[in-house]
Design a protein around this nucleic acid. Structure first.
Lengths: 136, 136
DNA sequence: CTTGACTCTATACTTGGGTACAAGGTCGAT
DNA sequence: ATCGACCTTGTACCCAAGTATAGAGTCAAG
């Protein structure tokens, strides 16, 4: 398969395939006499794996780690588990952070004790010094 | 106050202050004869507001919108409320997305039905084609 | 009047993950 | 043999939100 077909079947851009190769996510394919890359069929599966992992929030670097571990073949399971766990941890942290933000904004929009004229008071009040132009 | 003092008190980098000015978040301060920027005291409060809003997940563009609305003085409340609501919506969407990722990874790490040897099977199984090198 | 800390502008670099050319070479169907 | 569709490399650009550096000017204390 040539790169265009691989890209089409994996539903990514041709440039993206070459990018992944440069980043070491895809191993370098064979070349025809003309210089064209020639891919085995499973290249599509491989790229799909990358996209899948990305959709789970893994960065390309993390994905490369997973792939490299697998290539090495040894200490695979504990390490892959560790990568997955640390990603899980990062996701949990991010969720907590977003929930905190959510609360603050929600509070600002609804229960902040300001009269109805101050629906966005959480933000407005931060301009304390300049009451003359205040939204009141 | 000169820029260094403002930056120190607002706990940001000097470059950041200049960046915010260029982006229209801070109005241009007066200049001394030498060309040095000369800030009023409330510049610190203003920058703190920007950092605060950023910590709530607003982008600098959104913050600029809030500031611009406020400058204009009219249609302020409904618009600020709208900005806050859309940010809230974006945060909620992001939380939901992360929770979906979390579930998928958590499932892969714990209940996927694979024996203990496949703790990261969610990822490993995506390499279906290449069983010879599999972690089994 | 020199020294060191500060400031000025302009430009480039960073991270992450791509996307978009440009200028050339190749494939295959007609 | 020619045409369009494909491929090659290299480079540059995009987003956000800064950070870094260079080269020059300024301020204030000793």
């Amino acid at each position: 398969m040539r790169i265009g077909q691989v890209a089409a079947q994996a539903e990514v851009n041709v440039q993206t395939v070459r990018l992944y190769e440069r980043l070491g996510l895809l191993k370098k394919p064979g070349r025809r006499a003309s210089g064209y890359r020639e891919y085995p069929d499973d290249a599509v599966t491989f790229i799909r794996f990358i996209r899948q992992a990305k959709s789970l929030g893994f960065t390309l670097n993390e994905i490369k780690s997973l792939i490299d571990m697998r290539e090495k073949g040894s200490h695979t399971m504990a390490d892959m588990r560790a990568v997955a766990k640390s990603r899980l941890q990062a996701i949990d942290d991010k969720i907590r952070q977003l929930q905190t933000m959510r609360e603050a904004i929600h509070h600002g929009l609804t229960h902040c004790g300001c009269p109805e004229q101050f629906p966005a008071c959480v933000f407005v009040r931060l301009f304390e010094k300049d009451e003359s132009k205040s939204v009141s």
